[in-house]
């Protein structure tokens, strides 16, 4: 590795930290479920009881569990099962082979997503 390589690593780390702190929204109050870019459902995330939602994806049903301002995918069919292995999240879950996205956003951001 030469000095330019180390310079690149330094710049990358700088860029990543800037990016991380500017995009890291703290509390998501709503979840927007999308299939192929279209909004299927908007859910209010709350502290109340566990709820389940089903969305039809490309490879089958995607079952989403919502609880305590968080969501996770409990059941889906895909080659690598990446989205169900991610566990509880409160930012975003992507099931690429199923074309299903669960976006968790702050209250005021829903309008811009749903339009």
């Amino acid at each position: 590795m030469n000095k330019y390589d180390f310079g690149m690593v330094f710049l990358l780390i700088l860029f990543i930290s800037f990016f991380y702190f500017s995009f890291n929204n703290v509390n998501s109050e709503n979840a927007v479920i999308k299939y192929n870019g279209e909004v299927i459902k908007t859910i209010e995330l709350g502290k109340e009881e566990t709820r389940y939602f089903e969305v039809e994806g490309d490879l089958g049903l995607v079952v989403i569990e919502v609880k305590d301002y968080q969501a996770r995918v409990v059941e889906e069919t895909s080659p690598l099962n990446i989205c169900s292995n991610m566990g509880w999240r409160n930012d975003i879950i992507v099931c690429l082979p199923n074309r299903v996205v669960i976006e968790m956003v702050a209250d005021d951001a829903v309008d811009t997503i749903v339009r």
């Binding site: 995009f23 975003i92 690429l96």
Partner: peptide, 27 residues
């Protein structure tokens, strides 16, 4: 690709962690 294909700008949230992991694997 995921951002444009699924029309969800929020996916960009993954970029920092993906880039961070790319540094050791790339080296």
């Amino acid at each position: 690709f995921a951002v444009f294909f699924l029309e969800s700008w929020q996916i960009i949230n993954y970029l920092p962690i993906v880039m961070l992991l790319s540094i050791p694997s790339g080296i």
